[in-house]
Each structure stands twice: as C-alpha cells, then as structure tokens.
Amino acid sequence: MKKTKSVLLSAPYLAWMVVFTLVPLGVVAYYALTDPATGVFTLGNLRNLGMYLPVLWNSIAYSLVSAFICLLLGYPVAYYIAHCRQTAQKFLYMLVMLPMCMSFLLRTLAWVGLLQDTGIINTMLAKIGLPRLRLIRTPAAVVLGMVYNYLPYMILPLYATLMKIDRRLIEAAEDLGCTPVQTFCKVVFPLSMPGILSGMTMVFVPAVSTFYISQKLGGTDTVLIGDVIERQFKQGNNPNLGAALSLVLMLLVFVCTGIMNRFGGGEEEVVV
C-alpha cells in the first residue's frame, strides 16, 4: 500500500525524466550513430573524433583549473558564512545567490565590456598614463569567466556541509589538544569532503561544456569542446557529428564524476 503511494507520488517526476531526459538522450544517441547524408547506422561519426581530442583535453584542463580556483576562493567564504550569526548567515547567503538572479549571458557580456582593449579597465589605465593590458581573449580571461560564473555553485554546497558539522566534534578535538590547524586538517576538512566533491562537480560539469564564455572572453585559440559542438549544429550543419561529440562529452563527465565520488567515498570511510 505504502509502496504504491510512493510510486504514485513520484510518477510526475518519473514521467518528466523519461520524456525530457531519457528520450532526448536516445535521440542524441540515434543521431550520433547515423550517417548525416543517408541516415543509416554508422560508427563513422565516432571514428572522426580523434581530431577533437586536443580540444576535449583543453576543455577538461580549463574546467579543472577553474574548479580548483573556485574551491580555493569558495572554501574560506563558505567557512566564514557557516560561522556567522543566524541573521548574518541569511544575508550573506543571499549575497552569494544574488548574481545568479541576473542572466548568465549578461554577466559574461559585462566582463567583455570591462576587459576588452577599449573596455573600462584599459580606458582607465590609459587615462592615468599606464600602458594598456591584454586582458581579453587570453586563457586567463576564460578561466576568470568560468570562476566568476560558477563560484556560487561551489560556495552553496560547501556552506551546507560546513553548517551541518557537529560543533561538539570540533570542541572535542580542541579539548583533546589539537591546534586550530590540526582541528581543521583532521576534523573539519575531512567532514566537508562531500561538500567539496559536490561543489567540484557542480563547477566542473557546466564549465566543461560551456561555449558562451570561451566565445566571448577567449581568443581564436581558446576553443572548447562546447564551441565545437555548438558550431556543428549552427553552422556546420552536421548534427550527427555534434551528437557524437556530445555523447563522448557526456560519458567523460560520468567518468570524471565517478572518479571524484569514488575518491570522496574512500575519504569519508576513513573519517567514519
């Protein structure tokens, strides 16, 4: 009886998943495995993927770097928020969320306005007599765009985990003679591992498939796999190759998150 009830309750979501996730995935797989001209089954699309490996590798490197920078920036912020008074916590939490209320595209375009050669930063530098800097269309600009846009996705899960850590464990560690550094390394950090992992995943996954950030902030040489996929659909008129690339990217994301979770799972066991 209870079981049928829970099935009924989850039915809308399950139906949603099937219609809007599983079926489209099937369509992607179908396109990836058929020939663009004739529509018959082929592995040709996948065979051509070798030439995109450097781009794929590039995308992974950019997203990993961004995820680590997000972690370095986000951890202290999340830690600070988690240790504030209740009202202050709510306010700071809202501040972290605030940029997400504005369109991601607009925020990236705002960076273009800041960084470009005739942009706000360079105009100001020129006004006070300093040489202009090459800011936009560099790998650093792409990483900046990723970090800026995805930082909240790192802070929020970290904050949630850090807040739930039992204060008594920290007090116990201190009572037993741990220095603050030891308390952090041996108690707080391992306990926040689930937050770190979900934060890393939530930054890495959208960053690895982005195309807008690299197109706006990157140069002609910072091509990411997302750009390549987008172009296959938009100009290249080769949705089949685009689908094959998406499929590979998806598998890769699964593998990466799998590795992260496994690595994280082990850590957690050690703690327990």
Partner: peptide
C-alpha cells in the same frame, strides 16, 4: 558545400 563547411570547422577548431 559540406566539404567546405567541414574544412572551415577544422580551421576554427
């Protein structure tokens, strides 16, 4: 047309 498009993709990518 297809060849040109895919060659242009190789230039861009």
């Amino acid at each position: 047309s297809r060849e040109m498009e895919s060659l242009f993709m190789t230039v861009r990518n």
